[in-house]
Design a protein around this nucleic acid. Structure first.
Lengths: 347, 347
DNA sequence: AAAGTGTTTGTATACGTATGCAAAGCATTA
DNA sequence: TAATGCTTTGCATACGTATACAAACACTTT
């Protein structure tokens, strides 16, 4: 009783009207108000109308926080994003947030500069009782994966995978894509091939490098060049390309871990007066928007972002509904987009 | 009592241990546990140790949702972002999320394709009891601003302002920046100037256009060209530049609303064989990363993102602490970055 | 030893909503 | 009319935490 009085007399509170206020105005119980706003609950048309009128008059809005407390579900998905400078991840992020929003989920962002920070911030995100976590472009330590499993929060790795954990994964089929690039370059008659790598420890980089070099070996090539791009930025591509092209035996084709690296490579080649694609073929990865601009017109591997994101979300939804599902890993095939930065075979 | 039993016997619950579980294990009251995790609360070193040990053993993590329910504060800031394709806003977004995170706030993202969607999604975000809202690159209707004020949620507009609402605003000083560009181009000896606009209705576009043309008038120029860029993308810049450069009297200098537009313009000029900057000067706005790449080397106006974001966050924090503060509007000065796409005067 | 001070602790209640349960309402059937 | 079934309603309680209040405690001072 005292409670009700408090609620209706204290007009200074910020949070607006509560169900109790609405109930009193409509002359029904708080439960009736709750049921009115719960789809599928049992309320007569009569009470419903009274409640809605009262709610309207008071400007009532359901308090999602209170609901979450009971339901053990927030309708929030945490997204971890590490490499903010890469336009590729922006499209990924955009697709995720938009599609999740269409499904009625909201997005809590965890911005980490390094993998280490992911370790630090993830536990805090778990405190917000997010319904699921999507991790893009970062590795998840198994300790952290266990932590998520313990709280029952499903985790999807995007473009990474970690074996031996309960973290699901959706990746571009990097191995096949890299093999495809190797074939295309060899068919184009190139002899001295090179690869500029991305982040050393990542499964993504490992798969691309292995797919590429394995295919070279299969077709009888025993030597190639390899440069590390470290951080996979434009600048690191520029620097790595400089090391490659100033050698005595420069490559006649370079496969780059990302489009940003490829653009750095392309700009450096132009600066040195190396003709692309006559003297040097360059192939990127991602197919970011800029790759299609006339200034670059980059031949590259298009990651099917739409399908990858769809698959990741489907997997996540399934995992939310059936917590004890076994770990899912999916590889989505990529496509070679031929523009003018590489001289390729006809087939 | 019954409650305690439930809590400790039901081992299947997902949400992990609660303060009650910890309290029982440590042999103290639930309040003692709460105090242990509340900085500044009164607990003896002895109990604190017992509680921490028990918490550790049970893997206890505070439930932020429950805390938020009481405190009427979630430590979450909602960020509305509309134009996802513009690299400028990526940097803005990155700065916001990182700095907010350092302050202990989290970011809930609202991704809207159009201004209309902002109207629709904002009320839903308010239900999450966010402590504040930052709106980048979108306008806020006064109806919606009132809605926010009603719930006591402070709003910061970033690079927009709307007069007559209670929404605070932090903007780049677009008027001064555009006047600076006009001066620089006139000092460089240009005669036929043009402006390629951004989004028609925005305060940002209006201020840049007015600053530019007013300065031209002040210095005795009575005619100039103006093209609409509609959506301010690379493609729209490319198209607008085509219309400008295929005229009988093409401009010898183009001031573009954004770097993306300027890059489209630059690529189109190259395609038509127009020499930049000899025959045509191009100036952009934003200074996105790509503007500095050798392929473009774009002369442009650098928006001081760091300072702008800092100011926005400061303003927001003040508004959160003192709800009844008067509406704040701040304009941050910009800087002209001289590269090679424009022929400018020496001074 | 008593009084006074400051610290620590437990009890009880509140935050706003959802829901199991039983009572009540209503319509249908025997 | 009584019995039956279905729908609607209110009561009570739970979710996990914070905090006002008073009781208990530990010291210091007189």
């Amino acid at each position: 009783m005292a409670q009700k009085d408090k609620s209706s007399t204290d007009e200074t509170r910020l949070s607006g009207a509560s169900q109790i206020d609405v109930a009193r105005l409509a002359g029904v119980s708080q439960a009736a108000v709750s049921r009115t706003f719960t789809p599928g609950a049992s309320v007569s048309a009569d009470t419903r109308a009274k409640v809605l009128a009262a709610a309207q008059q008071l400007g009532y809005r359901p308090n999602v926080i209170a609901r979450s407390l009971i339901k053990h579900s927030t309708n929030i998905i945490g997204i971890v994003i590490v490499r903010f400078w890469n336009p590729f991840y922006w499209r990924v992020f955009k697709e995720f947030t938009q599609k999740l929003q269409d499904l009625g989920y909201w997005t809590l962002l965890l911005n980490a500069s390094h993998d280490q920070e992911v370790e630090d911030t993830l536990p805090m995100a778990l405190q917000y009782q997010v319904d699921g976590i999507i991790i893009t472009s970062a590795t998840l330590s198994s300790r952290m994966a266990d932590e998520c499993v313990r709280t029952g929060t499903p985790v999807i790795l995007f473009n990474r995978y970690v074996l031996g954990t309960r973290a699901h994964a959706v990746c571009c089929d990097n191995v096949s894509a890299a093999r495809m690039v190797a074939d295309a370059l060899l068919d184009g008659g190139h002899e001295r091939l090179a690869y500029i790598a991305g982040e050393a420890g990542s499964s993504t980089n490992r798969d691309r490098e292995q797919g590429f070099t394995q295919r070279l070996q299969e077709r009888g090539y025993t030597s190639w060049l390899c440069e590390s791009g470290n951080e996979y930025t434009y600048e690191s591509g520029y620097a790595a390309a400089k090391r490659l092209l100033q050698r005595d035996d420069p490559p006649d084709a370079i496969f780059c871990f990302s489009d940003l690296i490829a653009m750095g490579t392309l700009d450096l080649a132009r600066e040195l007066g190396v003709k692309v694609p006559e003297d040097l073929s360059i192939i990127g990865f991602d197919d970011i928007a800029m790759a299609g601009w006339p200034s670059y017109s980059l031949t590259t591997v298009r990651q099917p972002i739409g399908r990858m994101v769809d698959t990741a979300i489907e997997t996540l939804m399934t995992a939310i509904e059936t917590p004890d599902i076994e770990t899912v890993m999916k590889w989505i095939p990529a496509e070679l987009v031929k523009r003018t930065s590489a001289r390729l075979g006809d087939r």
